[in-house]
Design a protein around this nucleic acid. Structure first.
Lengths: 336, 336
DNA sequence: CGTGTTATCTTAATCGATTTCGAAAAGTCT
DNA sequence: AGACTTTTCGAAATCGATTAAGATAACACG
């Protein structure tokens, strides 16, 4: 591998001169610098990121912590989309992406230790159990952190507008004439809590009284759980006319249960999902769902993290709300 | 941050001794070593991966190159699953994962340069245009490489059994009584070529003559393209009784077109996909599709790469074929 | 002409960890 | 006791790049 030393020998200058020439310092003669850069190019010189990181204490490397309970992590489409856009934005700013985990090899580590060990300049945290002490340790540490869909006082957060999204969804189905609206939610996380709160608040604003039995618990990304929840709703004396699901995957599980029971969609019961995965608009009927703007969220998270890293002085924790968009499919019908 | 120097001062020994104690060298007294380890633990010492990488020339870092044409990269579920299992396996062996790309920041780089710059010990390559000179440069370089779904002489490869998969699929629908089998394929890649070849070969073995018009071109992961191809097939005088699609996403696009034209599935026409994405078994009707074992592929790729990295002497390029599995859904019917 | 200034380059320390080589002390053997 | 091993530890170099501080020469100015 070509190093600075190799170049310095070829050019008959010191290593310091080469380094300065390549980094555009002003105390190097313009011609000398040009020559050095020329030679460096010819020799195919590449700076060694490792050596640089060691000396400068800055790695130009961002850690991402994406782990969900099922450890399916990336299989959740919403998160793979976020990851992809985080990656693109980080790269544009000159940062690479490294996954953070526990226990790298045989060595037991927590997330913070792993990030430190790898000299990450910052970390983006998503799709984890935010009550995990290891996560809390990380976000409260000296490492700049941006969280996705969760707020800590100690760091910036990029949030999908769950409150606004749920409100829009409820108002939409209300506008279609629905009054008996049921909500199947995912496991209790901050996201679920926000959607639940927004659901109740919006219903109240619209003058709707939602019976307790209309609120059902399921699990994110779990068609079976939502199927069961759906069955419970169908068993009620007074069936809802519309059911909201925690995500599109669960949504489809619910639709299956409805069809199995001979309930037509949206003829007998209307349904809507959340996430707006690409497939939702390919399937027939097209799913009515609230699309979370994963791309913007990832980009925004990366942008903010880079800003914190590069301008730590001016930084104060900030929450950024990313709006989504209602995708009006064919699963909610108008009723009188 | 706690460094080796800090520990050496606390223990009144040299830095060399600390390093050796922590790495279990035999020329350190057992008691001394125990004490040093104890103190290191108390002080919360973490080795600095950067310094280590610089000195040892080994980063314990694996690059992954996942870029598809639409630069949607990870949005392709097959690849996010592979990535996830690559990550898990790599971590178990003590390796971290970093994404490789071009042009990190303002600096123009090719994949090889990027991997070198980051001191990657090896790279896993998938979902790229394998005719890209930058990719070819990488796989032919001194950096150990494992490719997914593509074979170079210069490196090991992990392959989904496209030949076997397609053969199984064809034989399955043949077994169901189908004789007029159409095949919509993705853009021409090595994967497509294998499936095409296997399709023809298997049909020939079964004594089937497939008219040219039954072979249609579309694009991977593109429901519109497959919809159009489907329309062309439906316009034929002699319609096929079964259509095979390049992947499940395209598959669904094709099904939509069929339904739009009032063709019932599988009553009028049978259909089958490829990939076996999780949703394929949640949707109703359940999709008949050939499931690629992404998890095994990722794990195998990581395992082999680690082996090449750690035992370069004994290594010879090897191809590993990972079998998939036919998921028998409800989209292929039996005909007399 | 002496002093100060500027432009240009080098020396050497540094980041944190590893490792070669050697040194000192302790033990072993004849 | 003298010679030789073995055990245990440390000094110093090293990986590649950066940078503070210093050196040298050219130049300007009163």
């Amino acid at each position: 591998m070509v190093t600075i030393t190799d170049i310095s020998q070829r050019c008959n200058v010191s290593r310091a001169t080469v380094s300065k020439a390549l980094n555009g310092h002003s105390d190097i003669n313009a011609e000398t610098a040009a020559h050095i850069r020329q030679v460096a190019k010819e020799m195919g010189y590449l700076p060694n990121a490792t050596a640089r990181a060691l000396k400068l204490g800055v790695s130009h490397n961002i850690g991402v912590l994406f782990v969900d309970k099922t450890s399916s992590g990336l299989s959740h489409e919403y998160f793979s989309q976020i990851l992809e856009s985080v990656k693109q934005e980080a790269e544009r700013s000159g940062y690479d992406i490294t996954f953070i985990s526990r226990d790298i090899g045989a060595v037991p580590m927590d997330y913070y230790e792993h990030a430190k060990y790898r000299n990450c300049d910052g970390v983006i945290v998503a799709s984890v159990d935010f009550t995990d002490p290891a996560v809390i340790k990380l976000v409260n540490s000296d490492i700049p952190t941006v969280t996705l869909d969760y707020v800590f006082d100690s760091c910036s957060a990029v949030l999908s507008d769950n409150v606004g999204g749920m409100a829009e969804l409820v108002r939409y189905v209300y506008g279609k004439g629905h009054r008996k609206i049921a909500f199947i939610h995912g496991e209790i996380t901050s996201v679920t809590q926000k959607r639940l709160a927004s659901f109740h608040k919006t219903c109240a604003e619209l003058g709707l009284t939602i019976p307790e039995e209309y609120i059902e618990a399921a699990t994110f990304h779990d068609p079976k759980a939502s199927g069961l929840a759906t069955r419970r709703l169908l068993a009620l004396k007074e069936r809802p006319t519309c059911i909201l699901y925690p995500d599109d995957f669960s949504f489809i599980g619910g639709m299956n249960e409805l069809e199995r029971q001979g309930v037509s969609i949206p003829g007998d019961i209307s349904v809507a999902g959340y996430d707006g995965i690409p497939l939702s608009q390919v399937l027939r009927p097209r799913l009515t769902t609230y699309r979370q703007d994963a791309e913007t969220m990832g980009r925004e998270a990366a942008r903010q993290l880079v800003e914190i890293i590069e301008r730590p002085k001016e930084w104060i924790p900030r929450q950024t709300m990313v709006p989504g968009k209602l995708l009006e499919g064919d699963t909610v019908r108008t009723i009188e």
